[in-house]
């Protein structure tokens, strides 16, 4: 089956790289937030910092994992993008800049 997405290859390649970079950046961010220094703060301040950190560490971690999944979704072989079916083509299209949000998908049933 041949499913194609009417988007320049370079756009796809760049999107994969950018999602991957976003994943790396967010990965560093949640780790930094998780281990942010609270040494020497009073018990009350420490508790407030920990209460603040907890949801945002999780949120940024999830965002990073999502960015990595998005990068992984765009599978490149040489100069071509691998698309299993129309569903995946739509998922990949949703990861590209909005300007390509109506890019055609060929090979749909």
């Amino acid at each position: 089956m041949a499913v194609t997405l009417d988007v320049p290859f370079e756009v796809l390649r760049t999107a994969k790289i950018k999602w991957d970079e976003a994943a790396d950046e967010l990965d560093g961010n949640w780790r930094r937030l998780h281990k942010s220094s609270i040494a020497g703060f009073s018990a009350e301040v420490t508790a407030a910092v920990e209460a603040f950190r907890e949801p945002w560490v999780d949120e940024i971690k999830v965002a990073g994992e999502r960015a990595q999944a998005h990068s992984d979704e765009i599978v490149l072989f040489g100069q071509r993008v691998w698309l299993a079916d129309a569903d995946q083509a739509e998922r990949v299209r949703a990861l590209l800049p909005w300007a390509h949000s109506d890019a055609g998908i060929a090979g749909q049933p």
Partner: peptide, 25 residues
């Protein structure tokens, strides 16, 4: 002074660095 300026700076630096990254993405 349990929470010292130096300690607060270290924490604030961590927080700013995280914010820089999140804003970048």
């Amino acid at each position: 002074l349990e929470s010292t300026p130096a300690r607060a700076l270290t924490f604030a630096t961590d927080l700013r660095a995280v914010t820089v990254g999140v804003k970048d993405v």
